[in-house]
Simulated assay, not measured.
Amino acid sequence: MKIVTTFGASRVDDAELYDEGVELGRFLAENGFTVKCGGYGGLMEAVSKGVKEGGGEVIGITLEYFDEIRPKNPYLTKRIPTKDLFERLKKLIEDSGMFIAQTGSIGTLNEIFMVWALKYGLGLDFRICLIGKIYEEFNNCTFIPKERLKDIEIYENLEVFKKNF
């Protein structure tokens, strides 16, 4: 089974960004991937909707604390609840051969840096794909060694990602 984990904003007010999430999910499902995500709203919901439309399976890795304060994602085919953030991150990461991040906030950055650190520190072999102009700023960061940028793939938008898939 091919598994990809997606990361992205839990709240999305931009219809174009939401639609891009749906398109990404559909694309992944149509290419035979099982998709894991955080299991809530925003881009997690959008990707899940696309996976469902594409006939695929999407697994939501949720956090018991959030279950009480965040709306349910109606598009999940499976939900795996976790007790704490560390367990949630572990479940999101395990068995995935690719990680894709769309626009997000601190939680998304946390997830990106976690998988990036694992790739670098343990020499693990998986793809990290960042989709969105916002991530082009990594190329200008002085706190990220330039040789570490080779560990990630940065795409201006979803269409560029799909062409390089």
Rank of each mutant, 00 (worst) to 15 (best):
A15Y: 00
L118M: 15
L24Q: 03
E30Y: 00
I3L: 00
T142V: 15
D13N: 00
G54I: 00
G55D: 04
I144Y: 10
L124I: 12
Y120M: 13
T77E: 10
G123K: 11
R11A: 11
E159S: 15
I59P: 05
V160R: 15
L76Q: 08
N31S: 03
K36E: 10
V47P: 04
Y65M: 10
K133T: 10
L109T: 13
L118V: 13
V160K: 15
K146D: 14
L109A: 14
G21Q: 03
L89M: 13
V12T: 00
K72P: 06
L63P: 02
Y155F: 15
N73F: 08
E16N: 03
L43H: 05
G41R: 11
P74K: 09
T142S: 15
C129H: 10
G60Y: 06
K78Q: 14
S10H: 10
A46P: 02
I93W: 14
E136Q: 15
E30S: 01
I93R: 12
E45R: 11
S105Y: 12
N157K: 11
I80V: 12
I128C: 09
N164Q: 14
K49P: 01
R11F: 11
R79V: 13
K163Q: 15
F27I: 07
G25E: 04
T82N: 05
K163M: 14
N140I: 14
A117C: 09
V35I: 14
G60F: 07
M1T: 13
M98A: 15
G50W: 02
I61K: 05
F7V: 09
L24V: 05
L43Q: 04
E53V: 01
R70T: 10
I100W: 06
L85W: 08
D14H: 01
L17H: 01
